[in-house]
Simulated scan of single mutants.
Amino acid sequence: MAKNLLPMDALIAGYLLEAIQSSGLTYRQIASDTGMSINRIGIILRQESPPATLGEIGLLGSAVGLSASELVERAENVARQRQDYELVANESINEFPEGNDADYDHA
């Protein structure tokens, strides 16, 4: 079963598409630079499933001078400003599994 894109996935893919279009690079050039297939690049930039992994975001971003963290931060900033915009598909995604929540606090 295909994994649906979350709103954050779509925002990040949109920023990648804008950056790639602005760069003037072709998908073939990006594929050569990143080692990704042209098909996979197209899937990500068309916002199709499956969504980009963090590693893929980093590879595509680096091809146009952006880091994965910059792309995620841009998307988060937009999402925070939009009252009706959900970062995740449902609340259960943000819940910790049963047990000690302190195990997950590495900040």
Rank of each mutant, 00 (worst) to 15 (best):
M1S: 12
K3S: 02
K3H: 00
K3L: 07
P7A: 00
M8T: 01
D9Q: 02
D9N: 02
A10R: 06
L11W: 03
L11T: 00
G14D: 13
G14S: 13
G14H: 01
Y15E: 07
L16V: 11
L17T: 06
E18F: 01
E18D: 14
E18Y: 06
I20K: 12
S22H: 08
S23A: 08
G24A: 08
G24F: 13
G24K: 12
G24E: 04
L25W: 01
L25D: 06
T26V: 04
Y27P: 00
Y27C: 01
R28Y: 04
R28D: 03
A31F: 05
S32F: 02
T34I: 05
T34R: 04
T34V: 04
G35I: 14
G35T: 12
M36V: 04
M36S: 09
S37C: 09
I38V: 13
I38K: 13
N39S: 15
N39P: 00
I41K: 13
I41D: 15
G42W: 12
I43R: 15
I44M: 11
R46Y: 03
R46S: 15
Q47K: 15
Q47D: 04
E48D: 09
E48P: 09
E48L: 06
S49M: 05
S49T: 01
P50A: 08
P51A: 07
A52Q: 07
A52I: 10
G55P: 14
G55K: 14
I57H: 11
G58K: 13
G58N: 14
L59D: 12
L60A: 11
L60V: 06
G61D: 05
S62Q: 14
S62L: 12
V64A: 10
V64P: 10
S67E: 06
S67Q: 05
A68N: 11
E70G: 01
E73N: 08
E73W: 08
E73D: 06
E73Q: 11
R74C: 01
E76L: 14
E76R: 12
E76N: 13
E76T: 05
N77Y: 07
V78E: 15
V78I: 15
V78A: 10
A79C: 10
R80S: 08
Q83D: 09
D84T: 03
D84E: 10
Y85M: 07
Y85W: 08
Y85F: 14
V88W: 12
V88P: 00
E91R: 12
E91K: 11
E91H: 08
E91N: 07
E91Y: 15
N94V: 09
N94L: 14
E95C: 01
E95Q: 12
F96L: 10
P97D: 02
E98C: 05
E98Y: 13
N100T: 02
D101E: 15
A102N: 06
A102G: 02
D103I: 06
D103F: 06
Y104H: 09
Y104N: 08
A107D: 13
A107E: 13
